[in-house]
Computed example of a mutant assay.
Amino acid sequence: MPLPFLTADGVTDADEDEVLAHADHERWRRPYRPGPWRVALAALLLLLSAFMLLATMIVAFAGGWGGALACLVAALAVLGSALQMLRVGVWVNRTGLRRVGFFRTRTTAWNEIGELRTVQQPVRWLGLPRTVQGQALTMSGRGEAEPPVLLTDHSADFLSRGEAFDRAADLVGAWAEEYRSPVPA
Rank of each mutant, 00 (worst) to 15 (best):
R33D: 09
G96V: 04
P34Q: 07
D13Q: 12
W125V: 15
T118W: 09
F61I: 00
A70G: 07
A50S: 05
P122A: 00
L97I: 11
A70Q: 09
A176G: 08
T7W: 14
A60D: 02
E18P: 13
M85K: 00
A74C: 10
L3P: 03
L171C: 05
E146A: 15
R27E: 07
Y32W: 09
A156E: 02
G162R: 14
A8W: 08
W65R: 13
E178M: 13
L72V: 01
W37L: 11
T118S: 14
A156G: 05
L44V: 14
L72P: 02
N93H: 00
L41P: 01
G162E: 14
W65Q: 11
L128N: 06
D157I: 13
L45D: 15
R180S: 13
T105G: 02
E178S: 13
R33M: 06
L116I: 10
D170F: 12
S181I: 12
P184F: 13
Q84C: 04
A168S: 06
E163Q: 15
L150P: 00
L116N: 06
G80I: 10
W125M: 14
Q84M: 10
M139W: 01
S155K: 11
L159M: 11
L79W: 11
T152D: 14
R99M: 08
G64P: 02
W110H: 07
N93S: 02
Y32K: 05
G114H: 04
P31N: 01
T105A: 07
R38M: 12
S81E: 06
V90Q: 01
G127Q: 06
A23P: 12
L46D: 10
A77S: 06
R142F: 12
S81H: 07
A42T: 02
A43E: 09
A43V: 07
R38K: 13
L159G: 01
F5E: 08
Y32E: 11
V78G: 07
L76F: 12
G101H: 05
V59P: 01
R130F: 14
T138D: 08
L150W: 02
L86G: 00
L150N: 05
Q120W: 09
M52Q: 15
L47V: 15
D153G: 00
G162F: 14
L72H: 06
P122T: 01
A109F: 08
F165M: 13
S49D: 07
T95V: 05
L83I: 00
G89H: 00
S81Y: 05
S81A: 10
R106P: 07
D170N: 08
S181A: 15
F103G: 04
L76Q: 10
E146Y: 12
D13N: 13
L83D: 00
R167A: 15
P122M: 01
